[in-house]
Amino acid sequence: MPLLELSNLRTSFHTRHGIVRAVNDVSFTLEKGETLGIVGESGSGKSVTCYSLMGLIPQPPGRIEGGRVVFDGVDLLCCKPEQLRRIRGKRIAMIFQDPMTSLNPYIRIEDQLIEPLLIHERIEYTEAVKRGIAALEEVGLPDAAKRIRSYPHEFSGGMRQRVMIAMALITKPDLLIADEPTTAVDVTVQAQILELIKRAQRQLGMAVMLVSHDLGVVSGFCDRVQVMYAGRIVESAKTDSLFHQPQHPYNRALQNSIPALQPKGTALYTIPGMPPDLSRPLPGCAFAPRCEFAADKCSTGEIVLKEVAPDHRSACLRVQQAEIKV
């Protein structure tokens, strides 16, 4: 049994501009100890997917329209709130994008850091503080015993992200969801943060879901990667295979847009057009209007994720029917 299984998850936001279908029919599984990358542009639904399974979608305006999220035999979408709460922060932990705003500015690091322990374990306060200090040392914060008494605004962004990681790992979770953990920190700190997560993963044997818009980050980190576009998964494969044999035009286009991978001196590649308006119904393939391979059927046909190569699935109709090679 996989650790986590999402099937047909659909989440939408009911806004003044209409119903925005942020996550549309997303299914995937995650094994124990596995590292899964989710990539896509902003607004492609990757973060919303994570928040949906954690039950962190603000409702209203958000609404989970359907689907199942089974974690270790428990459906997180329809279990009792109390049961979800006991899993959240204990067995599934999360790191957020912006360490500057994700820590409570009014509370000492200490109290925030050991909060998961106080919530989920029967533990003495002093004992919890000891574990907090150990956790800070683990993430490489010098002088942890003293600095644990600080407030968040006394820390730099990189340090705060370390605190966030220590806080997420303090309960030894089975699954860590990292939502763009490196986006808001300096480039020099990025590698350190990723290394920290990697090391903790080895030690704890936990599964990691890494959400990022940065293909470089994902490629070096994950066992398996899936690409999202307009609320759907369009391609899913082993990392090597995804990067070396792309099976969806969008994945190919994304990789072409990485400046570092292009020969110097050539014009930078950009994907023409704009991501679609998710508040309108999107028949066919959402990428079709921007796709160089698009055919008539692309804008009408039903889109499903199908295996097109061993352990490699794509949602491109034309790839599935072997009409094109991207």
């Binding site: 962190l56 959240r88 922060g89 999360m94 957020f96 912006d98 998961p116 919530i119």
Partner: peptide, 13 residues
Amino acid sequence: QDFIRTARAKGAT
């Protein structure tokens, strides 16, 4: 605020 989301993610009531 984001930090409220963090608190919820920690399983706070």
